[in-house]
Simulated scan of single mutants.
Amino acid sequence: MSLRAFRTITLVGSMALIASAAMAANDARLSNGKSMYGTPVDARTAIKEVNVATTGAVNVSCGDVVAFRNADKTFAWKFDVIGHRDVDLQSIAPAGFANKPLRIHVATNDMERN
Rank of each mutant, 00 (worst) to 15 (best):
D86M: 04
I82H: 03
T108F: 11
A19C: 12
V58E: 02
A24F: 13
L89H: 13
A16V: 12
M36A: 11
A21L: 14
H84E: 04
A19D: 02
L11T: 12
C62T: 10
L17M: 13
R103D: 15
D72Q: 09
K73T: 11
A76H: 10
V66Y: 03
F6C: 09
A53C: 10
F79I: 00
F79N: 04
N59H: 09
A95R: 15
A98D: 00
T10R: 14
H105E: 04
A98W: 13
A57C: 06
S31F: 09
K73Y: 13
R103N: 09
N51T: 06
I47C: 04
A5V: 11
T45P: 02
A71H: 13
S91N: 08
R103T: 14
G63I: 00
L89R: 03
A67T: 10
R85Q: 07
F75I: 06
V81S: 07
N32F: 02
F75D: 04
D88G: 09
P40K: 07
A93C: 05
A93S: 15
K73L: 11
T10L: 14
G96D: 05
I92E: 00
A43N: 02
D27I: 06
A24H: 14
T10N: 14
D86G: 05
A57D: 12
F75T: 07
K48Y: 05
R69S: 07
L30F: 14
D72K: 05
S61G: 07
A71I: 08
A93D: 05
G38T: 00
R85W: 06
D80K: 15
Y37N: 04
